[in-house]
Amino acid sequence: MDRKKLLLSTVALIGLGLTFLTAVSAAGVDAPNCSRVEYLSGQCPEATAQINNGGVDVSASKGTPGSGNGSSTGKGTGNGRAADAPPPPPPRPPNTREPRDYYTVTLPVKISDLVNFKPAPGVDHMEPNGWMLVGLDTNFYATVQSQVLTGELLGQQASVRFTPVGYRWSYGDGTSASLTTRGATWAALGIHEFDPTPTSHVYTQPGSYDIDLTVYFAAEYQYAGGIWVPVIGTLAVPANRLHATAGDAKTVLVERDCSVPPRGPGC
């Protein structure tokens, strides 16, 4: 393998800020390991992946062609869970004798396996925590990370890398927002409390609200040391539900600036 070569390229290119070139170089270079014997005998593993059942199904298969033994058992050999077999012979006409050697099977045997990978869901947060002021911005944000999950398929390592790419907040007041940023705390953004943020929301009516977040993950899979292959579509994973109460707040004039310590009475 030329991982060392790629690594060297990466180091050199990062220095120039040209990491995209490395990605181009890596494309198509690596593949599931497949030796000459495996290639000739149809044993090279093949893998596919799709979004299914709340996660990503990675399935792999490899075949061994023509396993017939010359006997007349009428059955194929193989112990796989799935088999790609040619169609059965046509039914015999009625009232004919059972032929002793009706056909000799040389079935291609294909074994396959499947693993479902599910990412850890994100966590929904809000500021202030558990309450909001009508007419002012409530800051919502999510904590969620890219994740690489690994399992084994047909004796080879299979991995799926989940990357959060979208966030849909349902604010419980009949409105929702689909965003590409997970948001951050007011402090992390370096702004004052109740300032608007890319992920904040303003409630217009007092009451109790349930806030739901769904995180959308892009996924890529890797099998047997091959390249990372994108999975078509995105995976929607619900996060926790927040329950919060919106109330009114009265504005009063106070003697000092409430945002500058020392704060005065009434802040």
């Binding site: 075949g63 017939g68 040389t106």
Partner: peptide
Amino acid sequence: LSKTKLLDSSGKDVTPPGVQTVVPFE
């Protein structure tokens, strides 16, 4: 691999379809 074949026990050619004659290896 142009001069190689995969045969089953009865001598039948069961070389997988799509096998190339010259294959690049690392």
